[in-house]
Write a protein that binds this DNA or RNA. Structure first.
Lengths: 159, 159
DNA sequence: TATTGTTATACTCTATAACTATA
DNA sequence: TATAGTTATAGAGTATAACAATA
């Protein structure tokens, strides 16, 4: 017998998946991107829950850390988030005491973003969790495939 | 001057992106997966709009074509879609006259899914549009990177 | 006039729970 | 008891449009 109903259901689902063909989808990068991303984000979000973050919030913190004093628009552009959505996300990070929004001196329309000391501590913990997650991804994909995928995908230019 | 306000805005956004660093994100596959997937899905959806489909609906049609008589659960499992959501998606395809739901003879709880003649015609057109899209992805990523990415990502096992 | 941050709205997607008919 | 399909609902994400302050 299986360890639990949920484990059994997962196994059955996997079995059914393997019995079904994908047709043309086998030749489409988008299908595999979506499939892998689904797993990667679930694993990363589960890991980051330990510091009350998710992938999006972590990415925002990391981007601010790498670009202190940057603006909401710049972070939104780098991460592909709508600037309208950034507001609520940054509100949350601010309420949690992880970031500060200061008036920019060069352009008083803009907010200069920065991490608080607490933000730096949480980000450091998050980076350790994400590094462990990244190792799981590499192991799951196969270390060689992981390296190839990272090398190939990182050369894609947005625009 | 730029060709239009929109083109100018895009260029400016790209410029700002290139001026911002990504920190640890540069080492994370998930970041690049999301970035590429964003572009790929937008391009594919734009292409499929010509036959009134999007990436999800196209994937469902292709999966049914590759597995005639398959069930809603099996398609949902293969594509990572919730079975609750499949209902409305299949309703749309059925209303458009592209698929049929028949009672399965082996298990009268299940629907045996199939394409209508019109569904086959539309899918054929969609496959041509998607093939052209796939070439754009390959050109944009670089043909070698594209091949490496497809080879690496396709070896990921879900479950 | 254009841009930054903000608010608001509508639509889509995700995650659940519960119901029905079957098994 | 469990599963296939369905309905309903709440939360998150996406896409837009509009406004105030500022450039």
């Amino acid at each position: 017998m299986s360890k639990s109903a949920s484990a059994g259901a997962q196994r059955d689902a996997a079995k059914q998946e393997s019995e079904i063909g994908l047709g043309e989808l086998e030749n489409h990068l988008g299908y595999f991107l979506r499939r892998l991303q689904h797993w990667v984000f679930r694993d990363a979000n589960a890991a980051l829950a330990a510091v009350d973050l998710d992938v999006i919030l972590y990415s925002i913190l990391e981007t601010i850390a790498a670009n202190p004093g940057t603006t909401q628009i710049a972070v939104a552009g780098a991460l592909g988030i709508e600037r309208a959505r950034m507001v609520a996300l940054l509100d949350g990070l601010q309420d949690a005491g992880l970031i500060v929004r200061a008036r920019s001196e060069q352009d008083r329309r803009a907010h200069a973003l920065g991490l608080t000391p607490r933000g730096r501590i949480i980000l450091k913990k998050a980076n350790a969790l994400v590094a462990a997650h990244e190792k799981r991804v590499a192991r799951r994909l196969g270390v060689d495939n992981y390296r190839r995928a990272l090398a190939a995908l990182s050369q894609f230019e947005t625009g």
